[in-house]
């Protein structure tokens, strides 16, 4: 079971990132749990300076941008 967290307080880019992550998970047909982290105190537990952030299995993989589907696919299959 893969754990995916989208860090961000509901800005439009955070929603786009969540949608892309869901799409990739569906395409890969893997079992994953996608969480949205919107509380700043929680978000700041990761070394992040700009949102949206993407955390896969407790590892921060990107911050401050929307990664492409290919990138997310690579992270999920690595």
């Amino acid at each position: 079971m893969v754990n995916i967290k989208v860090l961000g307080s509901g800005c439009s880019n955070c929603k786009r990132l969540e949608a892309i992550a869901r799409k990739v998970v569906e395409t890969l047909a893997i079992e994953a749990e996608i969480e949205k982290v919107t509380d700043y105190a929680e978000i700041m537990k990761w070394p992040i300076l700009s949102t949206p952030g993407l955390v896969i299995n407790n590892k921060l993989v990107s911050a401050g941008r929307i990664p492409s589907e290919t990138e997310i696919t690579n992270w999920l299959t690595a």
Partner: peptide
């Protein structure tokens, strides 16, 4: 520096910390 006002809070906290 790339900046969006929606990121003002994490940036502020990260700088101050």
């Amino acid at each position: 520096t790339p900046f969006c006002s929606c990121s003002a809070v994490p940036l502020f906290i990260g700088f101050i910390e």
